[in-house]
Simulated assay, not measured.
Amino acid sequence: MVTRGEQREDAILLAVLELLAEVGYDQMTMDGVAARAHASKATIYRRWPGKAELVVTAVKRHSGSPWWTRLTPGACAATCSESCPRCGRPWPGRMRRSCSG
């Protein structure tokens, strides 16, 4: 069973990754993370002393092979696009992938 604290932490870390992709590290703020995760800054600072530690935790938690590396050649025609296959939102420019399959 996932605890409420674990759910909150997952929401915060996902918000960090989304904001990093959208605005980059320099423009990402703790206020922005808190708003995106529907959490207070106090909740974030209780777990992480600063932005750098928060980003490191988010990247470590969600690291692994990206979804596009697990595709078989030719099977990605519907998946490789200009938008995220999970939510349908457009990829930020620096994250666009091209498909050769």
Rank of each mutant, 00 (worst) to 15 (best):
A11P: 05
I12P: 04
I12R: 13
L13A: 04
L14F: 03
A15S: 08
A15N: 04
A15W: 05
V16T: 03
V16Q: 08
V16P: 09
L17M: 11
E18C: 09
E18V: 14
L19I: 01
L20N: 08
L20M: 12
L20C: 08
A21I: 02
A21N: 07
A21M: 05
E22F: 05
E22P: 06
E22W: 07
V23E: 15
V23Q: 14
V23Y: 06
V23G: 07
G24R: 10
G24S: 12
G24W: 13
Y25W: 06
D26P: 00
Q27W: 03
Q27E: 13
Q27V: 13
Q27I: 11
T29I: 11
T29G: 14
M30C: 07
M30W: 12
D31H: 09
D31W: 04
G32A: 13
G32S: 10
G32M: 13
V33L: 15
V33T: 07
V33E: 15
A34Q: 04
A34E: 05
A34S: 06
A34R: 03
A35V: 02
R36M: 09
R36H: 08
R36F: 06
A37G: 10
A37E: 11
H38N: 07
A39L: 02
K41H: 05
K41Q: 12
A42V: 00
A42R: 02
A42I: 00
A42T: 01
A42E: 03
T43V: 12
T43H: 12
T43P: 14
I44P: 05
I44G: 08
